[in-house]
């Protein structure tokens, strides 16, 4: 091979997600129709973890898949510019911080770390408090996972060019 190494090559302009007619009309229409419903389903899966399969991890990935679909179907459009990797990862970090705060809250009332039942809210029973604590934690995990997946996708597809 002729390339001697040190200076890094410019990638050919036609490379990337815009190869030929890759995002065809069918892909664009279906993606734009489907993306909001995928995100809504992700929200449902996140919040419905108590009664069926789901929870923060699956729901968070589904929430991230909505914008990812739009980014694939419309490369370089407004979606990509409005959700840059750094910002999305900051949101994910906020989610993680909220998780830690939820864990610390019971310690204010003399409980153990992440022992949701120690926080006295009204007259709620301990099991009800744990139920609400699980819901809060699942939502926070959903935010963190969605942000991270979006940031990874952003880095791999946009940062690579």
């Amino acid at each position: 091979m002729a390339h001697g190494g040190a200076p890094e090559r410019e990638l050919p302009a036609e490379r990337g997600l815009l190869v030929g007619a890759f995002p065809s009309e069918v892909v664009r229409v279906i993606a734009s129709l489907l993306a909001p419903f995928v995100m809504l389903f992700g929200l449902y899966v996140t919040a419905h973890g108590h009664y069926g399969p789901g929870g923060g991890f699956g729901g968070g990935v589904l929430i991230a898949v909505g914008p990812v679909m739009l980014k694939v179907a419309y490369p370089g459009a407004a979606v990509a510019r409005r959700l840059p990797g750094g910002l999305v990862l900051a949101v994910a970090l906020l989610g993680f911080g909220a998780f830690v705060l939820i864990g610390l809250a019971p310690m204010l009332f003399g409980g153990a770390f992440l022992d949701y039942a120690a926080v006295p809210i009204g007259e709620l029973a301990a099991s009800r408090l744990r139920y609400l604590g699980i819901l809060a934690v699942e939502l926070v995990i959903g935010i963190a996972v969605a942000g991270t997946i979006l940031a990874i996708f952003d880095a791999v597809t946009e940062g690579g060019s």
């Binding site: 890094e8 090559r9 880095a155 690579g160």
Partner: peptide, 28 residues
């Protein structure tokens, strides 16, 4: 395994990032 699956995506993402950097430098 639920958590390991999501961590698997993280592993794949980091591996792909290294791959892209290697490709940019060596072209193969």
């Amino acid at each position: 395994i639920l958590t390991a699956l999501v961590v698997g995506v993280g592993v794949l993402g980091v591996a792909l990032s290294f791959l892209l950097r290697i490709y940019r430098r060596h072209g193969t």
